[in-house]
């Protein structure tokens, strides 16, 4: 073997040997036990402290409020949504009092009108809805049924109400087209308002020979729109015409 090669081999052997030994010494103990990671890291993450206790924990002491809350419209809203993380409170209730939001600004986080919110989700206009009054003067947040049945459909159907208000149908009351059972305003999911079912319904105003004011646009029910029902092309709350 040439001298150079022999010397190089010694250098390489020392180097690789050193690397292998240090590697063996330094690899964390639990590495590779369950996969290419430190199994100990999973335990570290698992034992992190809790901040939110979970709604079940509240019932232990606050059975009365939890019971009330469980019957109302806010039953899907966990206690800690409004009262904040409660894990510390469950361990030391007096030292760790939980806040209860009482300001008017809080409720609109969910119930302020926003067109991006799903249609039918109860929304109010924070500017015009009983201005200045804290929400809790009329609504018990644990059972937020309004003190009286809403007069306007817009209390819940804000998006539709707003759209309709600037449309050609602005002056039509909702009940012109929707027969609304009284129960719907008390328990909206129980009974639904109905909707028009045929072209003739719109024809009551828009057919050629309809007994309605002259300025209302007319169409020939027999030929206009062919096979389609009126609302398949026109949105009745904002009837586009073009």
């Amino acid at each position: 073997m040439p001298q150079q090669l022999a010397r190089l081999l010694v250098v390489f052997a020392v180097f690789t040997g050193g690397l292998v030994v240090t590697r063996h010494l330094l690899i964390p103990k639990t590495f590779g036990q369950r996969g290419h990671y430190r199994a100990a890291a999973v335990t570290t993450i698992q034992v992190r402290p809790l901040r939110y206790a979970g709604r079940e924990a509240c019932a232990d002491c606050h059975a009365d409020i939890v019971g009330l809350h469980g019957k109302g419209r806010h039953q899907t809203v966990s206690c800690e949504v409004c009262h904040g993380p409660a894990a510390a409170h469950t361990l030391a209730p007096v030292e760790n009092q939980l806040p209860a939001p009482r300001k008017r600004a809080y409720c609109p986080l969910c119930h302020g009108y926003d067109p991006s919110r799903p249609t039918g989700f109860p929304q109010i206009d924070p500017v015009s809805h009983n201005p200045m009054k804290p929400c809790i003067t009329c609504h018990n947040p644990h059972q937020p049924e309004p003190p009286h049945v809403p007069e306007e459909c817009g209390a819940c159907h804000g998006e539709i109400a707003r759209t309709k208000a600037v449309s050609r149908h602005a002056l039509l009351p909702c009940t012109q087209c929707h027969n609304t059972p009284v129960q719907h305003k008390v328990d909206p999911r129980l009974l639904h308002p109905d909707k028009p079912r045929n072209r003739e319904f719109c024809g009551q105003c828009h057919a050629k020979d309809a007994p309605s004011p002259r300025e209302i646009p007319r169409i020939d029910l027999a030929t206009h729109g062919g096979r389609y029902l009126c609302w398949q092309c026109h949105y009745p709350h904002m009837p586009e015409v073009d």
């Binding site: 993450i45 698992q46 809790l50 949504v81």
Partner: peptide
Amino acid sequence: CTFCYHRITRGLLPACVEVCPTG
């Protein structure tokens, strides 16, 4: 996000799910 691993392994829901008011 860990899906709140410290919660779910104790049988609790992730915090975001716990507080989502509309499900």
